[in-house]
Design a protein around this nucleic acid. Structure first.
Lengths: 196, 196, 196, 196
DNA sequence: GATGAATGAGCTTTCATTCAT
DNA sequence: AATGAATGAAAGCTCATTCAT
């Protein structure tokens, strides 16, 4: 299933994110997505194997974009603490610009579906995640202290997603700095070697 | 919806909690719930208007039980700080004993569904919630500082649910005290007048 | 999938035979079968796993009825030649009374479908076929001469079906005796030991 | 339907025969035929009005080829009995060389489809069929005896097709002479005036 | 009250056909 | 002339809900 027409592909993804976010996976029909994207029902199936594949494509697509954004905004030579801060901020800013996707992602995270559960791993144990890289670097340099790299990467990622989501839901305004400080409290304390 | 036969009613609720928790609302069929409960499919409709009503009944039922448990364990004459601690602990202990329901609740909390969104209010703005009562008392006595009672009640409830859920998912063990201290960190700091 | 209601089950089978015979498997919709049977669309699925299962049920059901009819009309103690004649006549008479089913059967026999091809074996290599029994008996008694029992059973069965079908298609009248004599010509000659 | 590009036209026909024979008309998609033929999906529609027209073209094309083969191999001045034998042998040899087409044809013959039923006439009542010509000649000369020319032409054609098919399906080897003798038995007996 | 056979609305998905390139 | 992306009609199937027993 190649990307025959990048523009239409994107429109379908966006329509699906919008619909899934607002109505949920099972309550959204493929017909609605197609209508929202301004394409024919069959066209969705030209770009995606089926409804579930579309769902998974959204996650992959989004995570990829986050990764790009994060990589653009970090200096791999800098102090890991700074890198981590930059990475978190970049992620939060991305969410600020893509509220739909952020909400979508967190919901997926708490989802029931078994087939979707497998994706949680893709999500949190991304081998090429910048977060993983940063944490690894920090430990190598003796700045961060922790045992399991993968678990921490997953925890950190999940915490960022959830926090952002929380703010979206419960605040009308979106003060990124406020979320950041909460996360800083939660993580740096432990990372810097004073945790249990 | 009278409780015609308390025992059957309970069996259906439990079966539904179990199924919804493990497969999700839309992936669970009424037939499955009936089978799990050991009753006929039609019987479910004798006790509940429809599938959604069953869903909502679960929430109401559970919250009621939590309220009972909390009320049993708090001393309305005690210091609001202590009352709050007792209430949180009672809630967490309830979840420890009813993991299924806890997970169910959090998922519902993050759910997409519009019709379910309305229930979030029933859930978080319960007029007779002990948490609301405690927070109100604490402010009256000048111990707690905050602006919107309802918002804070909702936030606190949500935080307890989410935290408990998080531990369920990411830890094999379940150390209630650990969750509590996290929550204490997050809330007391702000409640006691140093927050923004 | 038990036979909850024998009468409805039969009505669906008959409707399906009628429709499949006249429009073919792929051109017949489940909705049409349901309408023809005077039941709801979903009811078809109460009795049959899916469309294909309905198709196969028709074959099994029909073959079973033929077997019953044949067994009723043959004398297991009689000369195998006579038994064979009686069996063929009984089968032909059955077809005369169930033209739809006969045509259906032959078409299936010439069908393309792989999944249906497997059924051909069920059809022709029925281990408890009276034809097989008769041929076996005849050989034991030194009256019939042939090598492969299974192959001959299949060939005989197929020939009966095809011949009957041929007459249905090309004649408005249906002289059973005429078909029989053709079959007699084709088979007895060889069976009685003068063939190649 | 002009033959714009004879080579592509032939490739599509062959691909379609192959696919229809192995998967059946409804189970074969136009896309598959195009792929098999090595052309674009749209190209099929350049050469054939639609899927059904392609189907019918196969029959016409094939029958035409058979007619050519038969005409090449018969001597219009010879004894009608010999001509008939030659015509039958030529047809059988054609089938031996084009098994796919033979199977395709017989299946079509037993097909359900109404729209295809109309083609049975095209098939069996071909006004310019050599068989028809031979039978007519034979009757004129007082050698053959029968009533309805058209019916007999159809019957003879159908018998040839079916017999060939039968042998294909049930024998691994293909002894043309064997089929011929069967047909000779079936037809000459009646044709020569001893039938009922 | 309890049941499960019956039902049809509604969903996902396929695919013949069109048409802009 | 050749193509394949786009499309929507149509089909199989599921399942919440009803209702006769």
């Amino acid at each position: 299933m190649k990307l025959k027409n990048r523009e239409k592909y994107t429109r379908i993804i966006q329509a699906a994110v919008y619909m899934f976010t607002n109505k949920g996976f099972y309550q959204t029909t493929v017909a609605e997505i197609a209508r929202e994207a301004g394409v024919g029902k069959g066209t969705v199936y030209t770009y995606f194997e089926n409804k579930e594949a579309l769902f998974l494509a959204i996650i992959e697509e989004g995570l990829q974009q986050i990764t790009i954004k994060v990589e653009e905004n970090r200096d791999p030579e800098a102090d890991p603490r700074l890198q981590l801060k930059q990475a978190i901020m970049a992620t939060l800013n991305f969410f600020a610009e893509h509220r739909d996707f952020c909400i979508f992602l967190v919901r997926e995270h708490f989802s029931y579906d078994q087939s979707i559960k497998e994706q949680a791993e893709k999500l949190y144990y991304q081998p090429n995640s910048p977060f993983r890289e940063i944490l690894f670097q920090g430990r190598e340099k003796g700045i961060f202290e922790f045992e399991h790299l993968d678990t921490l990467t997953a925890g950190l990622t999940g915490a960022i997603f959830s926090s952002a989501f929380y703010w979206f839901i419960f605040s009308s305004h979106f003060p990124v700095s406020k979320i950041y400080s909460t996360l800083e409290n939660l993580f740096f304390h432990n990372l810097l070697g004073n945790g249990d």
